[in-house]
Design a protein around this nucleic acid. Structure first.
Lengths: 188, 188
DNA sequence: ATAATAATAGTTATCAGCTAACATTTACAC
DNA sequence: GTGTAAATGTTAGCTGATAACTATTATTAT
């Protein structure tokens, strides 16, 4: 698994992603063609599509979903659903090193500002919502439907927090914004 | 404004939309090309794009936004934000004639089932969210940010209700589903 | 070390959505 | 009726995405 082939693949993937993000930031998402990204990484456009199923996919990373789901599940079972999600999110964000957060900020900036990427993001969030909903199992005697609703609402709050985070260009802590957002949901 | 030209335009638009929805339902969204829709309506594909800015746009209708915003604004000012939105939505839905609801169901079916349309929908919802947020002005001493959060969460709940509505193929009242969804948010 | 093999990448062609430039038809106002 | 302006069609092109096929390159078994 660490042969030359594997390393080359990883390197190509990384290079494609890196050049893509750089070009998107430099000249805009729509103004950057897959052809250009591939050329910058020294491969053909077909290779791009072998590594990423679509142009927007090169920006996305769903790596946090399982971690967050686990964090929700490990909250005390008597906590209300939205409260459990809030604590899980805030704790996860506070535990995140600054370097990683700035990467997340860069990606988020792109996604929030490019309509095409936003649209994709909301589609990717369906999986996240599903995970959130499942990780609420057994909490507060909710039906499947109600769990989806709560998970969806929490994700909407998280999304709003991230958009605000991008708007203030990271000058407020994302964890604080998420805490504020989630609290304004439960405080009714 | 009711010259032959205007009438023809309205008729062309209606025809394009009608054939589009029919073809989408018959053979799927992706499998239906703009060319086919245009041909079915007896025009060229360029004419299609003169009437609708994009293929997905032919399915969308944002006609309800102003009505809903007004309904929210006219709720008693001491009602909590989520509660006000809930009552506004439920009242608007209960006042809707059955025929219109079945049209909404048909459109929703398409949108919920076609990933491409879902993605677009979520983008269109940004405008709806903005309207919801603005129509919450003065209610509950919320900041701009918090209003966006609450509006976003409410819309997420509405979306979940509509998805469930489609899932049960309209056999439950949408108003009831919305009421259930919104209530599960405030009940924490 | 080398040949067989399997993975990986490139080439080419094609399709669909979408836009632009230009020509042509058609309703309207006079 | 005729000129004008709107509406439509024609054609061509760009970009994202997929498929079929070929060529290259790393692995592996000898």
């Amino acid at each position: 698994m660490s042969g030359l082939r594997e390393r080359k693949k990883a390197e190509t993937r990384r290079s494609l992603q890196e050049h893509a993000l750089r070009l998107f930031a430099e000249k805009g998402y729509d103004a950057t063609t897959v052809e250009e990204i591939a050329a910058a990484a020294g491969v053909s456009h077909m290779t791009f599509f072998r590594y990423f199923p679509s142009k927007p996919a090169v920006v996305e990373n769903d790596d946090y979903d399982p971690m967050l789901a686990a964090a929700i599940r490990s909250r005390p079972p008597d906590e209300a659903p939205l409260t459990a999600i809030r604590h899980a999110l805030v704790a996860a964000l506070r535990a995140m090193p600054a370097g990683e957060l700035s990467t997340v900020l860069a990606r988020s900036r792109l996604i929030v500002r490019e309509p095409t990427l936003r649209a994709r993001q909301s589609e990717a969030q369906r999986a996240t919502r599903q995970m959130f909903a499942e990780s609420l199992a057994g909490r507060g005697a909710l039906s499947d439907f109600e769990r989806q609703v709560v998970a969806g609402a929490a994700l909407a709050a998280l999304t709003m927090a991230i958009e605000e985070w991008v708007r203030v260009d990271g000058r407020q802590e994302l964890a604080d914004l998420v805490e504020c957002a989630m609290t304004s949901l439960t405080r009714e």
